[in-house]
Amino acid sequence: METVDGRLRFMGRQVDGYGHLSDRDATLLARCDGSRPLDGFPAADRETIGLWRRHGLLLMAPPFTPGHADTEPPVVVSPHPDDAALALGGTVAGQGARFLDVFSVETWTKDPYYAERPALTRRLLLDEEGVAARVLRARVELLGFVDAADRDLRRDRFFADPAWSDGFAREEPELFDALTARLATLLDGVGQVYAPLGVGGHVDHLACREAVLELARAGGLGAARVAFYEDQPYSLFSSAEETAKKLGARLAEEGLGDLRPELLPVDDTAALTKCEALGAYRIQVRKGIIQRIRRHGVRLAEGSPFPAAERIWLMRS
């Protein structure tokens, strides 16, 4: 949010109904820092907070509950800030996670206001990730690689075809080797690892997938510890099943085994928490996409006792 001459602006536009932000409102906004429950505010303040939430200025988060000390949270290799939450937010809401945001230096957006302000966009995209992770109770580590849209080689062609190929990696060998080496250190000794399946063929997603596969080939990461998640929102427009089938055939030829799908159940509370967390992503993700992701999760769970699900693929020999 911005305040310009006392006027409240969000996403570069003035917020309806706020010609001027009063001192009281400014103080109340500062108090909405996640440190106190909603029922700890007076009724009048709760009404104002509810209005701000409807405008999208605030997000709700579930009460903090300490995790089990003897349970190691999974590690999600996230090509960019937002990919882990978009694909596995419901699962993470139920058990926590550690996000490794790989290509975390990015400025891409379709919003003209932010397209003209790349430095601001770079900072705010990370701020969005921090807010979403706080709602999901995930930890974020930024690896600092540059997004494909900001790399000279990839600026105008950051989707590869076919998505199950590894040929793209040879076009940026130094980058791929550096990424693989970095992940080797960060994933050493961890438990469950989730990596992108690569649906849609975004080269940053494919680079993360292939780096994890390289570690599995070299024995530095046991195949039983690895699962590939369904990239969102790309699977809304491309076939995750086809990508998994073709990639699985390639892996079987390499001796790694093919892929089998598995659904991760998402209960009502986790589904609500995921939707709330995804509300943090405004610069790149539209509200309509979030709703389509939610409906996709509901469709995946049809016939099961759960209201929603998220899909992964496991390697099997």
Rank of each mutant, 00 (worst) to 15 (best):
E2Q: 06
D5K: 09
Q14K: 05
V15W: 01
D23F: 08
D25S: 11
T27F: 12
L29Y: 03
W52F: 07
R53K: 08
R54Q: 14
G56F: 02
L57D: 03
V76C: 04
H80F: 09
L86V: 13
A87Q: 00
L88K: 05
G90L: 02
A93S: 03
G94Q: 11
A97S: 04
F99Y: 15
L100R: 00
F103P: 01
S104E: 03
K110L: 11
Y114S: 12
L120N: 12
L120M: 12
A132G: 06
L136N: 08
G144A: 09
D147R: 04
A149M: 13
P162Y: 04
G167E: 05
F168P: 09
A169V: 12
E171L: 14
E172C: 10
E172Y: 12
T180S: 10
G191F: 08
Y194I: 13
V199E: 05
H202A: 05
H202K: 01
C208L: 14
R209I: 02
A216H: 01
R217N: 06
L221A: 08
A223T: 14
A224S: 15
A227D: 14
F228R: 12
D231H: 02
Q232E: 11
S239R: 12
S239H: 08
E241M: 14
T243N: 14
K246G: 07
G255V: 05
A270T: 10
A271S: 15
A280N: 00
R282Y: 11
V285E: 07
I290W: 06
R292A: 04
R295P: 13
V298L: 08
L300C: 03
L300D: 00
A301P: 02
P305L: 10
E310W: 10
R316H: 14
